[in-house]
Amino acid sequence: MSHSLNELQNLNGKTALVTGGAGYLGMAMCEVLAELGSNIIIASRNLDKVETAREKLKIKFPDIEVHSLQLDLLDDTSIKNLFHNINSLDILINNAWSGKKNSFESISNDDWEYDINLSLNSVFKMIKHAKPLLKKNKGVILNVSSMYGHIAPDYRLYNNDNYVNPPSYGAAKAGVIQFTKYLASFLAPEGIRVNCISPGAFPHKETQQDHEFMERLGSKNPLNRIGYPDELKGVVALLCTNASSYMTGQNICVDGGWGIW
């Protein structure tokens, strides 16, 4: 058996693709995979943003290859083109997110469709394209869901409309959890493991400036605070490596205990 996690988690020579890899949480995910030795492909809609992220990663981890590729998850051709440029893949992290704040009253059909397309449909399309490559390498898939994929937001937290969590978000993320389980079953014979994570409250830096809101948000979970991107590194290192070789179809909640009370 492998004795230490260092051996179990070694990703030397592997290749990982992280959608939204230049974002607030995505960057931490790229960093942990790079630290474990994996080459990284960062894909994002904003090419300047991925290029900056690529340079940052290269400085920190000079020994690995980092590629930045443009990807518009709402554009089927863009997804297809992305995979024309990838010839080997061991790890796929479906992490990208973008969307508007909306309440149930304010959300339009278009906004609803946008959110479902981006947060759920694109996950299906990415995996469809990635599967042949992952099959070849007996790879892993990690989908990023959310605590709001299995628990409702407390509307009282969001009395300021600037932060309101749209109903489409949780619906899409719930879909991601179930889709993860579906794939864990159907891709098991191909040697592909599929898991997801449900981060709790990980507000962006700008949102963190609103101290009153941070206090309200933090007090909703037993650890009484928000989470920070580095706190997702451990779960990524667990689920994207052989340290979890007997785990598939799981959803790990990194939420300070939000969902348990």
Partner: peptide, 14 residues
């Protein structure tokens, strides 16, 4: 796992 509490990690091969 500094932000993980009250969870149940299922290691069951799916």
């Amino acid at each position: 796992s500094s932000y993980v509490t009250g969870q149940n990690l299922i290691v069951d091969g799916g």
